[in-house]
Each structure stands twice: as structure tokens, then as C-alpha cells.
């Protein structure tokens, strides 16, 4: 399958006249699909760059789900009530499930999960930078749910309409679960905000720490986001980074009032002229530092993933060997 896909989209220089004709017909079909805002499916012709962009984006998204399990798993064993422990376990488990759907969606483009996981543990793939921040208190479980998952939803709801079918469909399911997670996060903060003074302080401190990193989840400002334009032309990305960020700030600004907490940004306001929410300046130098691997937990997150992957190799080898033995046995029996 992988070879077939590569053959179809192979370099033009090595193409026979027949292949070139196919590619031209494919390009025409693809262009019509983009113009009609309809879907591209795995067996359809697609430009190499479109395929590469999607593999990169979907695998980064899958890696983010997998690495994102760690900061929350950090509190599973210490959750302060059994009900919260159950909810948190279910949530982190959902993230593993999201990783699975997304790797599967990327596999339809001809890159195997093994290969993507190999890139991740080799440090050659990116994941959402926010997971390189530590979860130091229980309130971080609330702030991650409310703000980080909230930002993820703003980003991901438009992706349900992404032009590549398997990605869009995976996102429909992911978004349903994410919105559930966001409500759970909000509920954690609401309980803390209405609790003892120490609990309320814990909640405010978490909101303060996660605010700027969650705004930066939308990516660099529009004038510094080189890939956005092409992704929008391909109907993968529907709204610009700044547009989504502004919507998110508006949501947070309203919801924080219900919590009885505040956002650590005195410059949040609704601009009546542009009809957009505005916020204070963000520290993009820090964003770049964390992205470049110099965040508080980059090394720790990667090491944990490597340990799980490499330490589990003998288990996967055993499962493969057993499956092969059973297949051979069945063949003899048949």
C-alpha cells in the first residue's frame, strides 16, 4: 500500500508519459475538490506536499495526545477523591485513544505508526509545546482541562471540516471527548474556587500559570506563520492563528467570571470596531525557547516516552512472534 501510494505521487522526473497524464488528471480532480470544498480520501490522487503536510500535522497531533498524557497521569495516583481519580483516569485513557485514531488517520497516507513513533522517540518530531510545562498542583488538572483542552477545541472544531476525510472524521470524535474534558476541568476549578482559601489560591495560581502557554497553543502571530496560507488554501486550516486566539480569549474572559477567578492579563478587551477580543503581549521568546527544547520538562517527557517505547520492545516482539507461530500453526492445520 505504502509503495503504491508513493508510486502514484512519485517524482515527475521519473514518470512515464502515462503516469504524467494520470498525475495531470489527478491534479485536476484535486483542484476541483479544493474549489468545491469536498473531501480527499486516501486512495485519491493528492500532491506530495499536501500528503507531507498532513502526515506532519496529524502525527504531531497524535504525538501531542501521547506526550500530553504525562502531565495529567502525574496526578492519577494522588487525585484527592475517588470520583476525581476515576474521571482523571478515564480522561488520560481517552487521550491514548485519540492518539490511536490519529496515528491510524496518518497511516492512511502511507506512513506507519512505528515510523511515526520512531521519529518521536528519536526527537525528530514535534508535539504541542504546552506539555513541556509541569503540573505542580491538583488545580493544574482543572486548568489543563479548562484552558488547554479549551484551546485545543477552538483549534480542532474547524478541523472536523478538514479536506482530508480520515483526519476530519477522527476530529469529530476527538472533539466530542475534548468538550467533555473541558467541562470536567471547569468543574474541578469551580469546586476549588468555591472551596477553602487554600483551594481557591491553588486554582488562581494554576490559571495564572497556564494562561499564556494556552494562548500560545494557537501558534505564532499571523505575520510570523509561514505555513498557514498554504494550509488554508488546501482547506485543512480554516481560520488564522490570531483569529482563533481571539475567539478563545473571549470565551475565557466570560467563563472566568463564573469561576470567580481572574485571568492574569489586564489588557483583555473586546474591540467594538473590529468585533474581536484583544489581549496583552505574549512572550514569544519563551515560546521559541520551549519549542527549541528548552522548556521545563522537554527532556523528562521525551525520556518517559523513550522508556515506555524501548522498555516495551520485548513485549511487542513477543506478541509478534506469538502471532507468527499461531499463523503458522493454523496454516498447517488448514
Amino acid at each position: 500500500m505504502e509503495q503504491q501510494l508513493q508510486a502514484v505521487s512519485g517524482a515527475a522526473a521519473q514518470q512515464s508519459p502515462e503516469q504524467q497524464a494520470d498525475a495531470e488528471a489527478g491534479q485536476a480532480y484535486f483542484d476541483r475538490a479544493m474549489a468545491a470544498d469536498s473531501r480527499i480520501e486516501p486512495r485519491d490522487w493528492m500532491p506530495d506536499a499536501y500528503r507531507r503536510t498532513l502526515v506532519r500535522q496529524i502525527s504531531q497531533h497524535a504525538h501531542s495526545e501521547i506526550i500530553g498524557m504525562q502531565p495529567e497521569a502525574n496526578w492519577i495516583t494522588r487525585a484527592p477523591s475517588l470520583k476525581r481519580k476515576a474521571i482523571l483516569m478515564a480522561k488520560v485513557q481517552d487521550e491514548a485513544g485519540h492518539g490511536l485514531y490519529l496515528y491510524s488517520a496518518a497511516e492512511t497516507l502511507g506512513t506507519s505508526r512505528d515510523e511515526m513513533m520512531g521519529q518521536l522517540v528519536a526527537g525528530k518530531a514535534r508535539y504541542s509545546s504546552i506539555f513541556n510545562y509541569p503540573t505542580v498542583t491538583w488545580a493544574d488538572m482543572g486548568a489543563i482541562g479548562w484552558m488547554v483542552d479549551g484551546a485545543a477545541i477552538c483549534n480542532q472544531v474547524p478541523l472536523c471540516r478538514a479536506s482530508f476525510g480520515p483526519y476530519g472524521r477522527a476530529m469529530v470524535r476527538v472533539c466530542k471527548e475534548e468538550s467533555f474534558h473541558q467541562r470536567q476541568g471547569f468543574e474541578i476549578l469551580l469546586e476549588l474556587a468555591n472551596g477553602t482559601p487554600a483551594q481557591k489560591q491553588m486554582a488562581q495560581d494554576a490559571v495564572n500559570r497556564w494562561y499564556a502557554p494556552s494562548l500560545m497553543m494557537f501558534g505564532p502571530p499571523d505575520d510570523d506563520s509561514p505555513n498557514s496560507k498554504q494550509s488554508m488554501a488546501w482547506n485543512i486550516k480554516r481560520f488564522s492563528n490570531d483569529e482563533l486566539r481571539s475567539r478563545f480569549v473571549g470565551m475565557m474572559a466570560e467563563q472566568v467570571k463564573v469561576l470567580g477567578l481572574s485571568l492574569p492579563d489586564a489588557e483583555i478587551r473586546f474591540n467594538e470596531e473590529t468585533k474581536k477580543w484583544e489581549h496583552g503581549a505574549l512572550d514569544w521568546d519563551e515560546f521559541k525557547e520551549v519549542l527549541a527544547g528548552r522548556g521545563p520538562c522537554n527532556a523528562q517527557r521525551m525520556e518517559r516516552r523513550r522508556e515506555a517505547h524501548e522498555g516495551g520492545a520485548w513485549v511487542r516482539e513477543a506478541a509478534t512472534a506469538y502471532a507468527a507461530k499461531m499463523a503458522a500453526k493454523n496454516e498447517v492445520a488448514a
Partner: peptide, 29 residues
């Protein structure tokens, strides 16, 4: 079992061990 979540040898086992942990936690509650 909760400690395995994010440390399992395969994503399917993060999900499976997480499920078993959740069932056990439900019975415990």
C-alpha cells in the same frame, strides 16, 4: 494499575490497563 497509564509497552495497553484500573476503581468505590 493507574501507574501504567502513559508507560505501557503499546498504546493499546495504555488503554487496556487503564480500562481495567477504571473497572477496579469502580468496584472499589
Amino acid at each position: 494499575l493507574g501507574h501504567w497509564i502513559s508507560r505501557a509497552p503499546e498504546l493499546e495497553e495504555d488503554v487496556a490497563l487503564g480500562n481495567i484500573a477504571l473497572d477496579q476503581l469502580g468496584h472499589a468505590r
